[in-house]
Amino acid sequence: MRLIIMALMGASFALFGSLASARAATPINPQADMKAFQGYFLKRFPKVPLAAYVNGPYNFSKSEADQWKQIMEFPPYQFALDTGKSVFNTKFPNGKDYASCFPNGGVGIAQNYPMFDPKTGRVVTLGIAINRCRVANGLKKLKLTTGPMADILAYMTSTSDGKPINVVVPNNPKALAAYRAGKEYFYSRRGQLNFSCASCHVQEAGMHLRGNVLAPALGMTAAFPLYRSKWGNMGTLVRRFIGCNKKVHSVPAKPDSAAYRDLAYFLTYMNNGLPVSGPGARP
């Protein structure tokens, strides 16, 4: 066990460090980045088709995949989905509802998030959009990491099941800057362990870290929100960011911070074209 960890820590980070800085220096081209990002995984794991990446670690461990299939017979997120739907369909005290805040009544739109908001010049995740809707209707914001927010996200995401992820980075300096900041966050090492997101989820993707398979960054956002057995309940992508940051012994950002908005923006953009498959279940 210890050997695996050691090997991981000793892996050749130099390569990626230089790659990250080289990328940051070149002009921003999200489309080209996305092609290269997806191409990297497709070349490295030729047996895993693009759409299968939404199933994350299960492409790399038959044993885990078998257990997952059994768990998916009656997925543990079913309660959240159920609750989320009824919350979504419950009217606010002012008589309006969540549907009134979204295009198409909030149905089948999750694949378009995170979205750049030209009015504020910021990235808006679906969770943040839900909170905006609440505030606009005189309600308090929900915690972005778990609980009712994850339930509502589970339901809204389920209505986009199978739709191709379609995050847009418009030709707007602030949108491009947000994208670049997310990309830099992804490739920057941090914390006492000096890991970047890419250390585990690009370089070591598909390898074992103790008992778990490290999921490739490609496809990762597609299954959120998800029920993690380790949590024993639902969590959002932001909750996972916080967990990863803590794991490498760095101080997590705030759930609604620009850092996490931008990271979600970049990471989800990299998944463009993959089918939405949330809510999901993971160990």
Partner: peptide, 17 residues
């Protein structure tokens, strides 16, 4: 249908209730 890469064996059909 849940599609899995060949690395994990055959593709599986996961059907929610």
């Amino acid at each position: 249908e849940v599609l899995l890469g060949a690395a994990a064996g055959a593709a599986a059909l996961v059907v929610a209730p």
